[in-house]
Amino acid sequence: MPTVTLIEAVTMAMDHEMSVDEDVVVLGEDVGRNGGVFRATDGLQEKHGEDRVIDTPLAEAMIAGLSVGMAAQGMKPIAELQFMGFMFPAFNQIVTGAARLRNRTRGRLSVPLVVRMPYGGGIHAPEHHSESTEALFAHIPGLKVVTPSSPARAYGLLLAAIRDPDPVIFLEPKRIYRMVKQEIEDDGEAYPLETCFIDREGDDVTLVSWGATMHETLLAADELADEGISCEVIDIATIAPLDMPTIFDSVEKTGRVVIVQEAAKTGGVGSEIAAEISEHRLMSLIAPIGRVAGYDAIMPLAKMERHYMPQVVRITDEVKKVMDYS
């Protein structure tokens, strides 16, 4: 069983699916010869050929728009955008094209497309290379938005995304691309979408997060356990559509929630989760819902980014605040 990093698991999933389904193709800037700027497509062109691992001209809108046309013909493109900060030219095509085609044609045409993009801060990257704007996608009906927090989830969720008959935005937390390794069987087993993962069971407070900040959230849970606070930790994994029942069950048990996101606080996915809990489980709450988020500021450049991103101490502070209620 290979021991792989998160980014190697991404490669493994694409390689597996390209091997079993000839309709699956990879396209994007530098994905072929270069194997992707982060090496997510390393070796794929050598193995599957230039016709299936396609270096495109440099134009993000084109990559997305082209993929819509290919998908409408029954191909299953996996489009790579190099960084989430450069997705905005493609956003028009994702929103007006990919997300709507099934609905616009009453199911006659559909877009089985995956748009992969690395996102998030913490790697001291240049400007526009560190943002987390997942809420923009989560707001769009017709899209699914998925992010893994571990190598195993990267493999299983990406397989599910490729096999999904609708467009999936697959966000890769680049800060943890090579942080940990896991043993993964390359067996083609997909994980379910629209399903949260309970990473740790606990009784006092529910911590909800996704992507790279799952790392800090679990560290915070460790620290808090030492202080006698028992945290249940949930990785939502599928940002849209959200699996709220799993979160509700946990809230019924703990009565306290802290949501951790790297994205700016206002209008974030955490806001939606908090609103859902307020609407449907208010009476289960014994404390206000806490949110630890990126500040409502432009993502700072490298020197200051650590102050912007949720650190373990911010999470433990917030948990202690909600623990004051009983």
Binding site: S67, G69, A72, Q73, Q93, T96, R108
Partner: peptide, 30 residues
């Protein structure tokens, strides 16, 4: 939802300007 079998693969009208050109290039790529 064009019912004529001859046009089942045709795209619906594109309202956002010029987006259709890329869809067309994508169909041609396929």
């Amino acid at each position: 939802d064009f019912k004529n079998p001859r046009v089942r693969q045709d795209f619906p009208i594109a309202v956002p300007i010029a987006t259709q050109c890329l869809h067309a290039a994508g169909v041609a790529t396929a």
